[in-house]
């Protein structure tokens, strides 16, 4: 079993790469291309939301007035703090402090699950009020005939984002497992850096999602 962090095996550069630096650059560019495809996916959803915002502003303001921005603010705090801990995890990995890396990863996982808990609270509130998308709609006290579309978009966007938070948590758990298998040094900290970049993407999407749905109403 893995002895003290110093006893962990070093990382060997994959055979088809010439140097560690070439490997790191390739993995980072690959990650950035994957981030690009994620941003295009969320971006297309934002285009749909912006279009409906311009076509039916009343429905959007009425819809977002029914959203609880306090929970949204707490969620923003959770994501930003977990972004901080992931950044610190990368620095710890670069300095070879294996223990600090694990501590930061665990902190990030806790904060991310906090985000999901707050999310479930919000969703259950929506289920009670009946503001569910389309055919399941049985809410009261709405005047604008298009507000069911706002909540349709709300569920699609926040649902897709929550799925990405789940994927991010999965990657953190995988990074935690990797930290028990290989020693992180200034020469090799790729897994932590890539998980941090993916998590920063989840932050980035939420930073735009939160005002668009909650605050602009």
């Amino acid at each position: 079993m893995a002895t003290a962090s110093t006893g962990l095996p070093e990382h060997h550069v994959a055979h088809h790469f010439d140097s560690a630096e070439q490997e790191f650059d390739s993995v980072k560019t690959g990650m950035w291309l994957f981030i690009a495809s994620e941003i295009m996916m969320f971006g297309a959803l934002f285009v749909g939301a912006l279009l409906f915002h311009t076509l039916h502003p009343a429905a959007f303001s009425e819809g977002s007035s029914h959203l609880n921005w306090h929970l949204g603010a707490i969620n923003t705090f959770f994501l930003l703090t977990s972004g901080l801990t992931m950044g610190l995890a990368v620095i710890a990995a670069q300095h070879g402090e294996q223990g600090k890396v694990r501590m930061n990863l665990v902190l990030s996982i806790i904060l991310a699950s906090g985000f999901l808990v707050v999310k479930t609270i919000e969703y259950s509130a929506k289920f009670e009020h009946g503001t569910l998308p389309g055919r399941l709609w049985h809410a009261h006290g709405f005047t604008d005939p298009f507000s069911h579309i706002f909540f349709g978009l709300y569920f699609v966007m926040t649902g897709l984002h929550a799925t990405h938070v789940l994927i991010g948590m999965g990657m953190m758990i995988w990074a935690l497992y990797r930290s028990t298998q290989v020693k992180f040094t200034r020469g090799y900290f790729t897994p932590i850096e890539m998980v941090a970049i993916y998590w920063a993407l989840v932050d980035l999407v939420w930073v735009f999602l939160f005002p668009l749905l909650y605050l602009i109403g």
Binding site: L33, A36, S37, E38, M40, M41, A44, L45, G48, F52, L132, P133, G134, R135, L136, F146, H148, I149, F151, G152, L153, F155, V156, L160
Partner: peptide
Amino acid sequence: QIFATPVLAITLILLLIENFFGIGIFD
């Protein structure tokens, strides 16, 4: 492939959700 295909993914997700829940974006 990198910049266009994700928009197909979103179109398909929206079509599937439109079929199941009828959120009213395309219908």
